[in-house]
């Protein structure tokens, strides 16, 4: 008596499963790039003699691909189909370095590549959107001077979405980050003037 599965039956089952698997609706993913505006022209970079960038620390829930939406107080949900194009930690680092440089009108380099006396560091504590159409950014930064003295600042702002959807949320978050970079630039200039 033959109890084994016949090869024909096995091929039929596999074909059936394949058809079932391919029968789903195709997913439409969206990827967003966190980048500064393109510079006006190409030029050489000169490390600032006054300012340097220490580091950007990002809250772990932010450092993931999907854009974060707070669906209820204390409950967030990363989007599956709306994702950042690159890891947030590196993207935030590069974005803030470029925008702070633009704010102080000097090329701010990482601390390891600069001898500048004033070094700023940033922690992004919250960066997400809400169901009622706001983008939220909570951040802290501190400036360390020559004598290791520290000056700390806090940034907490929301910005309403210009339209519905994750693209508007990405734009709003980028606008908040631009405002944060501008504030950091002002505080650096102020610290340099005070010194």
């Amino acid at each position: 008596m033959n109890t084994g599965i016949q090869p024909v039956k096995l091929a039929t089952i596999a074909l059936g499963l394949l058809l079932v698997a391919c029968s789903g609706t195709p997913v439409d993913n969206h990827y967003y790039l966190l980048r500064s505006e393109l510079p006006e022209q190409s030029r050489g970079l000169t490390p600032s003699s006054r300012f340097a960038m220490g580091g950007v620390n990002v809250a772990p829930y932010i450092d993931q691909a999907g854009l974060i939406l707070e669906v209820s107080p204390g409950q967030v949900r990363p989007a599956r189909h709306h994702q950042w194009a690159e890891p947030m930690a590196g993207a935030l680092n590069n974005f803030l370095m470029v925008e702070v440089s633009r704010a102080v009108r000097e090329d701010v380099f990482p601390e390891a590549a600069s001898d500048a006396p004033l070094v700023y560091s940033v922690r992004i504590d919250q960066l997400h959107g809400t169901l009622d159409g706001d983008a939220l950014l909570v951040a802290y930064w501190w400036i360390r001077g020559n004598n290791q003295e520290l000056v700390s600042y806090q940034f907490t702002e929301t910005r309403a979405l210009a339209r519905d959807g994750y693209a508007a949320l990405a734009d709003a978050q980028k606008a908040l980050l631009l405002e944060l970079a501008r504030r950091i630039g002002e505080s650096l200039l102020e610290a340099d003037g005070a010194g």
């Binding site: 169901l131 706001d134 979405l161 339209r163 519905d164 994750y166």
Partner: peptide, 9 residues
């Protein structure tokens, strides 16, 4: 379920 859509105020 689809991603919840944020709505502009």
């Amino acid at each position: 379920p689809p991603d919840p859509e944020p709505e502009a105020p």
